[in-house]
Simulated scan of single mutants.
Amino acid sequence: MERPTLSQDELARSLEATGYLADPELATTAFLAMRMGKPLFCEGEPGTGKTSLAKALAEALGLTLIRLQCHEGIDAAQALYDWDFGRQLLHLRALEAASDGHLDAEQAEKSLYDERFLLDRPLLRALRTAPCVLLVDEIDRADDEFEAFLLQVLDEASVSIPEFGEITARQPPITVLTSNRTREVHDALKRRCLYHWLEHPDLAREVAILHSRVPGIGDALAHQVATAVRGLRELELLKPPGVAESIDWAGALLALDRDVLDAQTAAHTLGAVLKYHEDTDRVLAAGLENLLAS
């Protein structure tokens, strides 16, 4: 299977068909990353649609999405490959039983590192799946050592497994890296990528997103939800709501058969949009009537 080739306009329309409404700058950067064969590095506040972009790209292109979720302490074994020790042990016992005490140790050791015992982790799976979309999510959570290791894999689109040999991708994966900027990612990685900073959408685009992702929502309710969420983002909250929370709030209101957002309904449904008790207290203290009136 060859990687799909779309024009810039075709890619934008394909993303929109999945429900992801990219602004012109982001659509252009995504197109250039694909055309130039470079990773796309997306940075921004949580909830601005970085992860969703990779999912939408995979859906729009009809490709498999392979996700590597980074976290503190992640290492190459968790990201690249491992050996199925349990199956290797069973295999070794079977060899011992069949050899009747005449087991060739060298041949037995070689047979332990057969492909059937190789466990693909996300990076190796992406190299062996051609083509695909590789999402390296929240790279800022990983440490410097892992970042340097990832840099080598992305540069060469191959990996050498000492016991097995070298594995090279037939086609490099379409790679999207995301960062919430909890720490600065090194320039060496950024230089190899096309970069885009994602902001929260403006009011008109957030309303359009709600219409796209929440079927049946009325225009008045979509405007109320989008406006209220923008007001919440202006408060000093521990976790300002992202687009996903806007969609959840609108969905919750529709599930309650509401066509307007009033203060009482907002108070009862804040759990769809706020995820910390302190944030809820702060919003209630500020006054929901003032928030909705704005």
Rank of each mutant, 00 (worst) to 15 (best):
A266V: 00
D137P: 06
E145G: 15
E166T: 15
R121M: 06
P46K: 06
L90K: 09
D100H: 15
Y195P: 07
E236A: 15
E45A: 14
K275Q: 15
R128A: 04
W83S: 02
L118P: 07
A56Y: 07
L150D: 03
A188F: 10
T269C: 14
A244N: 08
V136K: 02
C132W: 11
L253A: 13
E25P: 00
N290Y: 00
A94K: 14
L63M: 08
G47P: 11
L270D: 08
Q78V: 02
A285Y: 01
R121C: 01
R191C: 03
D219K: 03
V153M: 13
L253Q: 13
L68A: 11
M36R: 13
A286K: 04
A272N: 09
D248G: 08
L127F: 02
P240D: 12
R192A: 08
G271H: 15
A286I: 01
A77S: 15
L232S: 04
D120E: 15
R87C: 02
L238H: 11
L270F: 09
D120H: 15
E156S: 13
L135M: 01
Y276E: 11
L291T: 03
A130Y: 06
L63E: 04
S99G: 10
P39A: 13
R93D: 07
H211L: 03
T265S: 11
E166V: 13
A58G: 08
R125H: 11
T265Y: 01
A56T: 08
L26W: 03
I66M: 12
E2G: 07
H102P: 01
H211T: 00
A263H: 04
A105W: 07
Q107N: 14
V176N: 06
A130I: 06
A98Y: 03
T175I: 03
G218H: 08
I139R: 03
R13G: 03
R282Q: 13
